[in-house]
């Protein structure tokens, strides 16, 4: 019974995440158009909202070209490997108040492994590199391989900062469980400052957000697919629906990153009135996630791409020392207070 409930929740979460993807793509095109004083998609449906569905259909009916020199098994495996990690991260993210139950079963989180929790998010993030790296290698194309190599080095470097940023929050919360981390943020701090980790751990927030952007290959860290130097980078040789899968993976990653940041730093489902009306929690969570997605799109429209040496220097000489200092200071603070 327990497994059945968990399976149903997992399927629903999967459907919602995958179903919101076309709208995120549409939103990005509208936001980008706005930033560049264009109109953006406006032909398919009201405000062009169905554009993504039209594009998806078009991609499905396109010829699926498989170049002769590719490493077939890995070439087919790579798009799948790119999509899976982003989706599985949602298994531990609470997307509403755990107090809401149907027949005694909390419905707003899939599972809450107390001993793993946020480590699971970190683990699947580290696995997301395989899709890109293998796609680049299996394509047997120099541009793809360069994209893959860049991606591998970039992800290894930024994972370090990501882990250190998570440590700051985990130390402060005294738990790995994302539900515990959110509940810890409910208590206001001195001078009525809300207890969300954004205010208590600003360095960790900046580190985590920056490193997450790098992990998902979004601008300004989109070197693995830099179109001005590498044709299309790791997915140069992919067409039709296999290309669409990489495309989907990128946008699901954006959604995952936003949801995780909203949970870790913005208090997840917390907000005014959630105590009386626990159902409101889903709305707050969705709003916070949407705001972060907008921020990521805004950054893409605003920032230029890093140069490769700048990217590496930034990870190892700026983010790493900052992260270490943050962990050290947080540990000291927790220690002096005698626990969390």
């Amino acid at each position: 019974m327990e497994y059945l409930i968990m399976t149903i929740k997992a399927v629903v979460v999967f459907a919602v995440v995958a179903g919101s993807m076309p709208f995120i793509v549409w939103a990005e095109r509208k936001v980008m158009a706005d930033a560049q004083a264009r109109i953006g998609p406006n032909r398919v449906g009201p405000y062009g909202i169905l554009q993504s569905f039209a594009d998806a259909l078009k991609l499905m009916f396109k010829e699926d070209v498989t170049p002769r020199q590719v490493d077939k098994p890995i070439y087919f495996l790579a798009p799948v490997l790119a999509m899976i990690p982003a989706l599985t991260a949602f298994a531990v993210v609470p997307y509403g108040s755990p107090e809401v139950t149907v027949y005694g079963v909390p419905i707003f989180y899939v599972t809450d492994p107390k001993q793993v929790g946020v480590l699971w998010v970190f683990a699947v993030t580290t696995l997301s590199v395989y899709g890109v790296v293998l796609a680049g290698w299996a394509s047997n194309n120099k541009w793809s391989l360069l994209g893959a190599l860049r991606s591998a080095a970039q992800m290894i470097s930024y994972e370090v900062a990501l882990g250190l940023a998570i440590l700051g929050v985990v130390l402060g919360s005294g738990s790995l469980s994302l539900i515990d981390i959110v509940e810890k943020q409910a208590v206001p701090r001195a001078f009525g400052i809300p207890g969300i980790w954004l205010f208590a751990q600003p360095v960790a927030f900046l580190l985590f957000f920056t490193a997450s952007l790098a992990e998902t290959n979004r601008t300004p860290f989109d070197l693995p697919e830099a179109e001005s130097e590498l044709v299309a980078g790791f997915h140069t040789e992919y067409s039709s629906f296999k290309f669409a899968m990489f495309f989907m993976a990128e946008y699901i990653n954006v959604l995952t990153v936003s949801a995780v940041v909203a949970t870790l730093f913005l208090g997840g489902w917390l907000g005014p009135g959630v105590g009386q009306f626990p159902l409101l929690g889903v709305v707050y969570f969705a709003l916070k996630t949407a705001a972060l997605i907008y921020l990521i799109m805004w950054l893409r429209a605003t920032l230029p791409r890093f140069r490769y040496d700048q990217l590496m220097r930034f990870a190892w000489k700026v983010l790493l020392p900052l992260g270490l200092a943050n962990v050290f200071i947080t540990a000291l603070w927790v220690g002096l207070r005698g626990g969390t």
């Binding site: 993030t125 580290t126 590199v129 790296v133 190599l149 992800m155 290894i156």
Partner: peptide, 10 residues
């Protein structure tokens, strides 16, 4: 799987 094998592949 996340760090050591990625470096191997690299």
């Amino acid at each position: 799987t996340g760090a050591i094998m990625v470096l191997f592949l690299f």
